[in-house]
């Protein structure tokens, strides 16, 4: 009989994800849950969830979870981390949540060097409300509120969150990854692990930005959407490590 199994991680509940077919949220959830399991942190973890498609995280993770108002997760996580000794605190936020309405909260949590992990899902669109322009929508990209494509003269330029936050002294680790193929998923998993280690070693703020597909919002089949991430999003948002202060051995 088989002796090695790859299966749904223990830190996820049995609840089925509500995400659209081919949405990358589910992959990112699994990577985080697998890492919680690997570090044996389920009983210490407190997740702060966003408003947006991932608003049901509290049903999916078998850990303590707090909802936060739209964009405010870094403030909520700041307080939880500071008042709770020895707990592992992470936020999970989308681009509308983190890069639009919650810009003040994320910038100041990073600047203060809050010892939390932020998992930032950038799919260049507002999924939950029906595909409107996000702060990360690519120039020329059509959305429900940029029907002719994002015109940077009128709607401005996309916000590059990793590049923006990396210079803060309080930031210990930032990497931009994608989960469009097995190779990149393995890299993304390593980034998640690293972010966890930065918090566990009390090095301060860490963030992993995931370029993520929204097949429904983009109006593409899932396989094409994953390719679109690789071919288009990475041009605007280059992958790589933007900050790494170094871990202890």
């Amino acid at each position: 009989m088989s002796n090695q199994i790859l299966e749904r991680p223990k830190s996820l509940t049995q609840k089925q994800f509500h995400y659209c077919p081919g949405c990358h949220h589910g992959i990112i959830h699994r990577l985080i849950a697998e890492t919680i399991d690997e570090f044996d942190l389920r009983e210490k973890t407190i997740i702060v969830q966003p408003v947006g498609c991932a608003v049901y995280i509290y049903e999916y993770f078998d850990t303590d979870v707090s909802e936060a108002a739209h964009g405010r997760a870094p403030a909520v996580a700041t307080a939880i981390k500071r008042v709770s000794k020895g707990k592992f605190v992470l936020t999970y936020q989308g681009d509308g949540d983190l890069a639009a309405i919650g810009t003040a909260e994320i910038v100041h949590a990073a600047a203060r060097g809050e010892n939390i992990c932020v998992f930032f899902v950038n799919n260049a669109i507002y999924g939950m409300t029906g595909g409107q322009m996000a702060p990360t929508t690519l120039p020329g990209m059509k959305t429900a509120t940029t029907p002719l494509g994002r015109d940077v003269k009128k709607q401005g330029y996309p916000i590059k969150v990793s590049e923006m936050l990396a210079p803060f002294e309080g930031v210990s680790y930032i990497e931009r990854v994608m989960v469009s193929s097995p190779k990149h998923i393995i890299k993304a998993k390593n980034a998640v692990r690293k972010a966890f280690k930065y918090q566990l070693q009390e090095k301060g703020f860490s963030l992993v930005e995931f370029l993520s597909a929204c097949p429904t919002g983009w109006g593409m089949p899932p396989v094409d959407a994953a390719k679109w991430v690789e071919e288009n999003m990475t041009k605007q948002f280059p992958l790589g490590v933007y900050k790494e202060v170094g871990l202890d051995d």
Partner: peptide, 13 residues
């Protein structure tokens, strides 16, 4: 805005 959400976090904890 951040203050009240920090209050929320601490209360949740």
């Amino acid at each position: 805005v951040s203050v009240i959400n920090m209050v929320y976090g601490a209360a949740a904890a």
